[in-house]
Design a protein around this nucleic acid. Sequence first.
RNA 1: GGCGCUAUCGUCUAACGGUUAGGACGGAGCCCUCUCAAGGCUUAAAUACGGGUUCGAUUCCCGUUAGCGCUACCA
Length: 443
Amino acid sequence: MILRIDDTDVERNTETSLNSIFDGLAWLDLGWDEQYKQSERLALHKQIAEAIFLKDLAYRDFTPPQAGEADKSGAQGTWLFNAGMRELTREESDRRAAAGEPFALRYRVPRDTVRSIHFTDAVYGEQSKSSADIEDFALLRSDGMPTYHLASCADDADLRISHIIRGQDHLTNTFKHVLIFEAAGVTPPTFAHLPLLVAPDGTKLSKRRHGPVVSVTTYRDAGFLPQAFVNFICLLGWSPKDDREKMSRQELVEVFSLEGVNRSNAVVNFSEQEPFDPKAVWLNAEYIRAQSPEEVCAELTPIVKNAGYDTAKLPQITLLVRERIRLLNEVLTVGDFFFEDELAPYDAAELIPKKGDAAMALRVLQRACEVLAVAEFTHDGLESSLRAAAGSLGIKAGQMFEPIRVAACGRKNAPPLFATLEVLGRETCLKRVAQATEKLKSI
RNA sequence: GGCGCUAUCGUCUAACGGUUAGGACGGAGCCCUCUCAAGGCUUAAAUACGGGUUCGAUUCCCGUUAGCGCUACCA
C-alpha cells in the first residue's frame, strides 16, 4: 500500500486539509508502507513529459490560459484543440519557447486516423471511446507544473502501481491516461472505478458544498467507532450479497471483491436535522452494544473528561447508558444528570404522574424522602422499599416511580430507576427529591 | 452542446430469464416493561417509461426520460 499525496495544484493544497486526511486515516487504522508527495517528484513528471514531446506525441500550445470558467453548457461544438498550435513547426515552436513565451504542453491525440481507445475496468467492464471525442489535454501547465493526468500516470508507472481504484468521476479521464501510458511505453495498471457517494439531492459529495459530511474526522468527533464507520462505508456501493450487514474488518477483507461493486451512485442520507445517515448511526449503536462494558467505558472516558466531568462513577454509568447511546458523545446528553451537580431546569408539571395530580406527586415525593433516607441503597433494596411505599400510598408502582425519576433525572425518559438512584447515591437523591418538592409547591 | 456512466421500496441493497421481487435502516402498530432504550412480533413501501427478443423478462437488446460524471493549463 502506497500513500501518495496528489498535490500538483499548489493553490488548493493546504496544510490543514492534509492533516485532516492523516487524522482520518489514523483513526480508521488504515496504514501504508510507502509515502510520496507528487510535488516532490516534479523532475520525474517533467522527464516523462519531455520524452513524450520528443516522440512528437505532444506539442506546445502558446495560447494563453482561458480566463474564468469556460461555458460548458453552451451550444458550442466540442473543443478538441486550439487552432494553429497542433500544426506549429518544430522550428517555430522552439523559437517561441526560446524567446520565453509561456506554453502548455498538450497531448497530440490521434486525429488523422480515428481509432478506438479501450481498457477493461474491474467494475464497469469493457470501456471504449473514439479518439475523435478526446480533446488534446494538457500535460504541463504554462508554469511548468504537471497536470494531474501526467503526474499520476508518471508516478503510477514509476511506482509500479498494480491497481488504480478511484472514483467514477475519473472513468472518462482514464482514456487520456491510457494514451499517456501508451506514449510512455508502459503497460497500464488495472483500473477499477467505484460509484460516487452523493448527497440526497444526487450531486456528488464535495468539500465545498457538503463540508462536514465528507470529512472523516467529523464522524470521529461525533462519537462514531472507527470499525462501525468503515463497516458503513463498505456497504455503500457494495454488499456481501448474503444479507450480512454488521461485519468485522476481517470479514470485509475476506469477502470483498471489485466484481461485486455496484455501478450506480450511492446516496449518503443526511439532512440538516439528521447530520448522519440513520443507518450509520444504527450500525454504530450495534457496535457499541457489542462491546464489553469495559471497552465502552474506555471509549467514553476521554469524552466525559473533556466535558469537564469526574469519571469516578463512569463504570457504573456505562452499564446504564450503553444501550441508550447511538454515538459515544450522547453519553453527555443521555447521562447528563449523572455528571451535573445541579439538574438542568425542568417543568414542575413533569413531576405529576400519569392519571395523577400535583397532590399525588407531592405525597409521593414526601414519602420518597422518608424512604430514601433509610432504605438500603442498592438496586434490590430500593426496589422493595419503593414498591412497598407505593402499596402503602395505595397507588400503582409506576405512579410512584415517575415523580421520583423526574426529580432525580430532570426528565421522564431515563435509565431504569433503581440502578440510577443507586449510582446517584443517597445524598444526591435526597437533595433532588427535596428540590422537586419545593418546585411542586410553587405551582 | 459532445462523450461516457447509471436507473429495484424514502435510503443502502438481494434476486442462473421462471420468487407471493428478499434483507437492512428509517416509518407505523403490537408485545415485553417502573419511563426510555434494547429485544420479540406484525405491517406499509420498489423493478422510471415505451418497444422488442422469449413460452416467460427486474434480469438480454433498442429507444425515451431522468440523474450523475468528464468536457480549453482542478484533482
